[in-house]
Design a protein around this nucleic acid. Structure first.
Length: 941
RNA sequence: GGGCAAUUGGCGCAGUUGGUUAGCGCGUUUCCUUGACAUGGAAAAGGUCACAGGUUCGAAUCCUGUAUUGCCCACCA
């Protein structure tokens, strides 16, 4: 590659051409693969860092049937950016991909398909139905993977895991059996959340409560054996009349004088004609309603507790479809809503309705199906959570696991300290079947398979038939094992030893309870027995936790602030955006808009910013390459292969790769060079800090500003004027491409190859990330070049004000306050002249003849200099306008000056403020003063 | 009922240990197709940082309260 390059880049960046090519090149080149030290020779890139630690991210597995929405796009972009960043830092970066079987969601979809064919799952039977779900899964799971590829994601596809895979299935069963053996899983008859649609139990987390407009009904329950001075009936209040069919008592507060005498007496439950007692319980609030509560233990969790305290029967009046059953008398067969209507009509006819009021209360709905959840009494399996929650809270409190932003710790703590047992059984067919077998007399045997259950049965001297539990486990009961089951747990695999614990978990905050908290519990509980890589046991908490940092990203909303949702149709398909704007543009935009933990409103047009940025970078590279060709052709003996970076006289290019992780070895020879090198290194430093602090939107902002404003707007312009800066520009650009690569992988890879001429087998993503050389951060160079920039800007402003055509050469004079600046400006003379298009430039010291505002328009550059632009024919009107402008400026500065002056003369300030602040303010005051004087002179002349 | 956030120019947002002449993108106005880029360049207008107190030499930034908005949690029938 002696001819470093020809300028072959197209005029605009077209992502489609570039993305497909590079993705397959990366994949074929093994970029995504992470290897254990013992597998190192397999790494096709030949580069690995045995001495460097792995960096592991487990992808939150999307639902296998789902399509990715904007939230996924953001989340996976965050993860991919961190993976790429750490890969470039030399870590063995492992991103574990996979999908989730999503029990209810998936089963519901397949059942719906069956329904369209006029069938139910029972028509097929369990085995055939599950087979059908597998078919469905197999035809849909590719889709997720393709979308992730389109987003440029680089997980280790070889490790792709599905939560129903054979090995994973085993892990789930193992976890169940172990917890059961420890007494942390039990079976119990409880009130659970029942989804009549899914016909299954739900966990508390799968129920969302919404304020719902309803009615509070006041019913009269007649008193039996009423004495003359007693009321005819007791009035109870209820929001759910249909449950009265299962009433077994009415409770009052023991201290309620109104009813004290009636405690122990009986009421006649209307419609059912059942005698029920009046009982006393502290739970009842005297103030609410009538102070009398009907008690329905089978249909309300509170009533259930009260029922237990008072040994009341539990009468379940509904079946699994929330239809009234045979215990509901004449209402049998009615749906719960129809039953309510009929009960109201019937009670009305009996004159037993006191009144009905409007009432708003919180009602639970199924997160999936959206229907009203029924509190339902049934036998279910539960995980005892408190013993698991305690250490899981501890590791977060102790900072072993850090939340970003930190405030989520509060939410986490609250949930963990008020934790309730987790209902894990689901009356579905799609999922891991509960490994419990029942004997004919209700015996329960839990084992990894039927053999094991049989052995336990034998031990218990049970010889009869064994029937396995029909139910499956909650999907989250498999998800919480994700950080280690994916590596082969419960087997003691080399992968598990090498890649556990992981590092980063990135997720939306809405699954903090579902998933994040439980994964922490799972890691602490299940990894205890697994040895570390060196064979020693995991004794420390930090060896058990599944990850160290949890990044809670924002929720993406539409421009009206609504949550993106399928039903609203307000969620753009990320893949459409990728097609329209390019992957890099979408990635950049999402990260740029994603301040940590703050919801963000997203409009598709935002992607234009990312697209424009990619195009800007593209063209800057195109230009730099063009200048390089030009520069090379002018050199008598270009020495590209030279490893040295000597810069005396004939500047030469260093071999780009040899720079390793820092920007450039070229010794800067001009102010602009020192400036850009300083800015570049400062940027590298700040980017690293932002990455490490999980301020990813800050990363993109810093890069955007540096690349666009410093490099493109100024330094590229400098190169046009100072061709000797070309080699440095090339090297800065090369570093820019590396710095930006984790965020915008495609365009940077394409440009990097164009620029360096590297073979496709060499990938920027396997190369070193830029690290800052802080010794090259040069405050005075930055300040001095900024001074030059301000002068140029002043000149442009004056030209615009005076309406002088941009192309017309002008006469300009710069008057400086300090002699040192005479030389400074002199050395930058060419830059100033070319950038301001001035025909003649005078540089003069303080003092000397005044320049009249009849001839010159002027502008102050802080207190440091004043720029004068020679005007052509000046009319009275122009002159007045110029004076007005100066006057306005004078007033503005005067105001600040006065404020600062009184501040500095305030003894309180001078005695209490730190010295450096005071001296800074003094310098500012002097600057104001000099500006004021100059403005006055300008106005008068 | 408890908790957590947010409130900065027309719109969307930065501003992380209190000290900047309060920034950015979009939009608006003016000018510019000068050999990287019109997906561009140059310039301009536009904000008493929700409100009221307080702490401090100094507050967009810290504290208290108020208002509005959003989210999470909670078994008051």
């Amino acid at each position: 590659m002696s001819e470093l390059s020809k300028t072959e880049l197209a005029k605009a960046y077209t992502p489609q051409d570039v993305e497909k090519k590079w993705y397959s090149t990366w994949e074929a080149g093994g970029l995504f693969n992470a290897y254990r030290p013992d597998e190192a020779p397999q790494d096709p890139t030949g580069r690995r860092a045995d001495d460097k630690a792995p960096f592991v991210v487990c992808m939150p597995p999307p639902n296998v049937t789902g399509i990715l929405h904007m939230g996924h796009a953001l989340n996976n972009t965050i993860q991919d950016t961190y993976i790429r960043y750490h890969r470039m830092l030399g870590h063995e970066a492992l991103w574990m991909p996979g999908t989730d079987h999503a029990g209810i969601a998936t089963q519901t979809k397949v059942e719906k398909q069956l329904r369209d064919e006029g069938k139910t799952r029972y028509d097929l039977g369990r085995e055939q139905f599950v087979e059908k779900v597998w078919d469905w899964k197999n035809t849909h799971s590719d889709f997720i993977e393709q979308q992730l590829r389109a987003l440029g994601c680089t997980p280790d596809w070889r490790r792709f895991t599905f939560t129903m895979d054979e090995g994973y299935y085993k892990a789930v069963i193992e976890a169940f059996v172990r917890l059961h053996e420890k007494g942390l899983i039990y079976r119990g008859k409880r009130i659970i959340n029942w989804s009549p649609l899914a016909q299954s139990a739900l966990s508390d987390e799968e129920v969302i409560h919404r304020e719902t407009q309803g009615k509070l009904h006041f019913f009269r329950y007649p008193l039996i054996d009423r004495k003359a001075d007693e009321p005819e009936y007791i009035i109870i209040a209820t929001t759910r009349p249909e449950t009265m069919l299962g009433d077994v008592a009415v409770a009052v507060n023991p201290n309620d004088e109104r009813y004290q005498k009636l405690i122990g007496r009986k009421l006649m439950l209307p419609l059912m004609n059942r005698e029920i007692p009046i009982i006393a319980d502290d739970y009842v609030d005297k103030e609410f309603g009538t102070g009398c509560v009907k008690i329905t233990p089978a249909h309300d969790p509170n009533d259930f507790e009260i029922g237990k305290r008072h040994n009341l029967p539990q009468i379940n009046v509904m079946d699994t479809k929330a239809t009234i059953n045979d215990l509901g008398g004449v209402y049998q067969g009615l749906d719960r809503y129809d039953a309510r209507k009929k009960i109201l009509v019937d009670l009305e006819a009996l004159g037993l309705i006191e009144k009905i009021e409007d009432y708003t209360n919180s009602v639970g709905y199924s997160e999936r199906g959206g229907e009203m959840v029924e509190p339902y009494l049934s036998d279910q399996w539960f995980v005892k959570m408190q013993p698991l929650a305690e250490p899981a809270l501890q590791v977060v409190e102790d900072g072993l696991i850090k939340f970003h932003p930190e405030r989520w710790v509060n939410t986490y703590r609250h949930w963990m300290t008020n934790i309730r047992d987790w209902c894990i059984s689901r009356q579905l067919w799609w999922g891991q079947r509960i490994p419990a077998w029942y004997g004919e007399n209700g015996e329960i045997f839990v084992g990894r398979d039927e053999n094991e259950a049989r052995i336990k049965a034998d031990a218990a001297h049970y010889k009869g038939k064994l029937v396995q539990d029909e139910d499956v486990l909650d999907t989250w009961f498999s998800s919480w094992l994700w950080p280690f089951a994916t590596f082969g747990w419960p087997d003691n695999t080399a992968d598990l030893q090498t890649f556990y614990p992981g590092h980063l978990l990135s997720t939306a905050p809405d699954i903090i309870f579902f998933w994040v908290a439980r994964m922490i519990m799972g890691g602490l509980e299940f990894m205890k027995d697994m040895p570390k890589l060196d064979g020693t046991p995991r004794t420390k908490m930090e060896d058990l936790i599944p990850f160290r940092d949890v990044y809670f990203h924002n929720i993406i909303r539409d421009q009206q602030g609504r949550k993106m949702s399928k039903s609203l149709g307000n969620s753009p398909d990320p893949i459409d955006l990728v097609g329209k704007y390019g992957t890099d543009a979408v990635r950049f935009t999402l990260l740029y808009l994603a301040p940590l933990g703050q919801d963000v409103r997203f409009g598709e047009e935002n992607c234009e910013q990312g697209r424009n940025f990619a195009n800007k970078l593209w063209n800057a590279t195109r230009f730099v390459m063009m200048k390089r060709d030009e520069y090379v052709s002018k050199q008598s003996e270009p020495k590209f292969e030279s490893p040295d970076a000597e810069t005396n006289g004939s500047v030469q290019f260093t071999a780009l790769k040899a720079n390793g992780a820092s920007f450039s070895t070229i010794v800067p020879s001009s102010l602009a060079d020192r400036w850009i090198l300083s800015r570049a290194n400062r940027t590298a430093r700040d980017v690293k800090k932002a990455f490490d602090d999980y301020q990813i939107n800050e990363v993109t902002k810093i890069l955007y500003d540096f690349i666009w404003k410093d490099f493109c707007d100024w330094y590229v312009e400098v190169v046009k004027i100072q061709p000797d800066s070309t080699p440095l520009a090339v090297e800065i650009l090369e570093g820019i491409l590396r710095m930006l690569h984790p965020v915008m992988p495609f365009v940077t890879e394409e440009l990097w190859h164009a620029l360096t001429g590297n073979d496709v087998s060499v990938m920027i993503g396997r190369d070193d990330y830029i690290s800052a050389d802080e010794g090259k951060i040069n405050d005075s160079a930055e300040a001095n070049f900024e001074f030059i920039q301000r002068i140029v800007e002043s000149s442009r402003l004056l030209r615009a004000n005076a309406k002088i055509a941009p192309s017309k050469p002008v006469e300009m004079i710069i008057r400086v306050n300090q002699d040192a600046d005479l030389t400074l400006i002199e050395t930058s003379r060419e830059i100033i002249e070319k950038m301001t298009r001035c025909g003649s430039l005078g540089i003069i010291p303080e003092g000397g003849p005044e320049l009249s505002n009849k001839e010159y328009s002027s502008d102050l550059v802080g207190g440091r200099a004043q720029v004068f632009l020679k005007l052509e024919a000046v009319s009275e009107e122009d002159s007045k306008k110029e004076k007005d402008r100066l006057q306005k400026e004078l007033e503005r500065i005067l105001k600040q000056y006065e404020a600062l002056k009184s501040k500095l003369s305030d003894e309180k300030f001078t005695s209490r403020a730190p010295q450096d602040i005071i001296s800074k303010e003094k310098v500012k005051l002097a600057s104001f003063l000099s500006q004021i004087e100059k403005l006055k002179v300008g106005i008068e002349n």
